[in-house]
């Protein structure tokens, strides 16, 4: 079925209305698995891979609830930020913040699992007053936001905190872009993501220079 740039079919259906429910469930499950993955793998490759996956899931949600242009712009900016962070790590030798596997992995996994459950529970109540979004889209956004908040508290290295903030923002974007159809908003929040990645690039470069000395 064809859709125009604003996400409407020629029969007047919005994308979200005819999105297969199993795809939505799959996406939410992927987010939950991704969050659990981040909770026990704290190396930069895993975190950036998870972040890139979250941006792709976010892209599908925005594609079905808003316009394709917004979804594409958001994906490009999100992947751009992830790419910039990956590039900073590849170019930082020695790695200034490479940490050994952090202790308390089982605690982190269990906490993340409970946060995911809390996200589901919160989505039920929230869906009563945010009626514009489907329950599963709300769940995806809230789970990511809560997990992002949890990861901010789990990790102490600047790059881990920045990636956790990006995960938090990703969850917010899934909800916000379903409510507000504004390309400028996508671009401005994209600018925030890119600036965070750029600030991290600067920090990593400086720290690795210090480590070399």
């Amino acid at each position: 079925m064809g859709f125009d740039l604003n996400g409407y079919s020629r029969h007047g259906h919005r994308r979200g209305e005819i999105m297969p429910i199993f795809l939505l469930i799959l996406l939410v499950l992927l987010i939950a698995v991704g969050c659990l993955f981040v909770s026990f793998r704290s190396d930069w490759r895993s975190l950036i891979t998870a972040l890139a996956l979250f941006y792709f899931i976010q892209f599908i949600f925005i594609l079905y609830s808003s316009s394709p242009l917004m979804a594409l712009a958001d994906l490009a900016l999100g992947w751009g930020a992830s790419g910039m962070i990956a590039f900073s790590f590849i170019n930082s030798k020695p790695l200034p913040f490479e940490t050994s596997p952090s202790p308390g992995v089982s605690f982190k996994v269990i906490s993340t699992f409970f946060f995911i459950l809390t996200g589901f529970a919160l989505s039920f109540t929230t869906s009563y007053w945010i009626t514009q979004l489907s329950f599963l889209q709300l769940s995806a956004g809230i789970i990511l936001m809560l997990s992002g908040l949890l990861f901010i508290n789990f990790y102490h290295e600047p790059w881990q905190v920045v990636i956790s903030i990006l995960i938090l923002l990703s969850g917010f974007e899934i909800i916000e872009y379903g409510l507000e159809n504004s390309l400028l908003l996508v671009l401005l929040i994209g600018l925030v993501k890119l600036s965070l990645a750029f600030a991290l690039f600067f920090i990593l470069r400086r720290e690795s220079r210090r480590a070399r000395k």
Binding site: P158, L191, V192, S195, L196, A199, F202, I203, R206
Partner: peptide, 13 residues
Amino acid sequence: ELVAIITLALFFE
């Protein structure tokens, strides 16, 4: 928020 991000680089300098 962008102001806050700029200061990130400043304080880590």
